[in-house]
């Protein structure tokens, strides 16, 4: 009798231990399985956690999930395809980094107007090969002040076309060709230089513009334009518009003043000289790429600066940690198609 009672007690106790111990085992297993990375709209928190770290050569186990809408996980300046993250589902991802450094991970699906603010950093530590030192970008080497205003009154009558300019290419001086011109000069400066060339004196203003368009076309490749178009549609069109007119679906919202009325008055300066510089909430209307008075006064290097650094308080994201060098140049090549007809004769 006594023996049976002890057996029963032991049985009950072992069941209790199992019930209490099971979550503990599960928790340990989860800790080994890696990091649970939750995505949320930027307004309600963005990524949690935002900072990850891993050693070179070690596997970073990520379990991705979303708390609200469809997000996507990608790593900047890498060729890893983006991974969609669906609410209520766990997507597993294993990452191995072979070079130390700081990598930006970001969302590639438009999840709100502040979608681009949804970014985080993976810090990869360890010896490994130090990555090739990044060359400072062209706009820095040229010392371009990105925030100075640019404008030109010298605009062509119609959209310059490369195929029309092709006729006069034999008249071009050798110095007027090459990538140096395309990268560093604004079209309007280049046009003025051509205009003062005696060999081209007999051409009309429009013909000289067509010639400039041809030089711009000779520095872009069709597959580069295609890549640029793809990047533009995914990353830029929501604000700058599908046709580049600065009229994307978010344009109207970006044009509004700061709803929180954050203002800052500089002593001695005009009132509201820096509206909400602290909050960074204030945004401005996206640039109209079809406006020749603005675009033709910009050089490719300046566009590169705008893309890499962003708009600083205008709502324009900074793409430096996201785009590779070649992606940036492909995008710039595509931006020129809003001003120049770079294609073949129709």
């Amino acid at each position: 009798m006594k023996h049976k009672e002890w057996m029963a007690r032991l049985f009950v106790l072992s069941l209790l231990a199992l019930a209490l111990g099971a979550p503990l085992i599960g928790w340990r297993q989860q800790a080994q399985n890696g990091v649970l990375l939750r995505g949320r709209m930027a307004e309600t928190g963005g990524w949690t956690p935002e900072n990850l770290s891993v050693a070179v050569g070690e596997t970073l186990y990520l379990r991705l999930t979303s708390d609200d809408v469809l997000h996507s996980f990608a790593i900047g300046r890498s060729d890893m395809p983006p991974v969609d993250i669906l609410p209520g589902e766990i997507t597993e991802l294993n990452l191995v980094f072979d070079q130390p450094g700081k990598y930006t991970f970001y969302c590639t699906r438009w999840c709100s107007i502040n979608h681009w603010r949804m970014r985080g950093v993976i810090e990869v530590v360890g010896a490994g090969q130090p990555g090739a030192a990044l060359e400072s970008p062209l706009y820095v080497r040229l010392g371009i002040d990105l925030d100075s205003t640019v404008h030109t009154a010298l605009t062509p009558e119609e959209k310059p076309a490369a195929w029309r300019g092709q006729e006069y290419t034999r008249l071009l001086p050798a110095a007027a060709l090459g990538s140096e011109v395309y990268l560093t000069q604004a079209p309007v400066d280049y046009w003025q230089a051509l205009r003062s060339t005696t060999a081209l004196a007999h051409l009309t203003d429009q013909q000289v513009w067509d010639l400039a368009a041809w030089v711009w076309a000779s520095n872009t490749a069709p597959q580069e334009l295609e890549e640029g178009q793809q990047l533009y549609a995914v990353n830029c069109a929501a604000c700058h518009g599908e046709s580049g007119g600065g009229d994307g679906v978010f344009a109207a919202q970006l044009d509004q003043a700061d709803p929180g009325e954050h203002t800052m008055t500089i002593p001695g300066g005009a009132p509201d000289a820096m509206p909400s510089a602290i909050s960074g909430v204030r945004t401005t209307r996206p640039t109209d790429f079809t406006n020749p008075a603005y675009m033709l006064a910009l050089s490719s290097a300046r566009l590169q600066g705008k893309i890499l650094r962003g708009g600083m308080g205008t709502g324009m994201p900074y793409w430096g940690p996201i785009f590779t060098e070649s992606q940036t140049w492909a995008l710039i090549a595509y931006l020129w198609t809003f001003q120049f007809d770079l294609g073949e004769k129709p």
Partner: peptide, 11 residues
């Protein structure tokens, strides 16, 4: 039996 998805900027 038709389905599509659109992102802002990509109708």
């Amino acid at each position: 039996n038709l389905e599509t998805t659109a992102e802002p900027g990509q109708p």
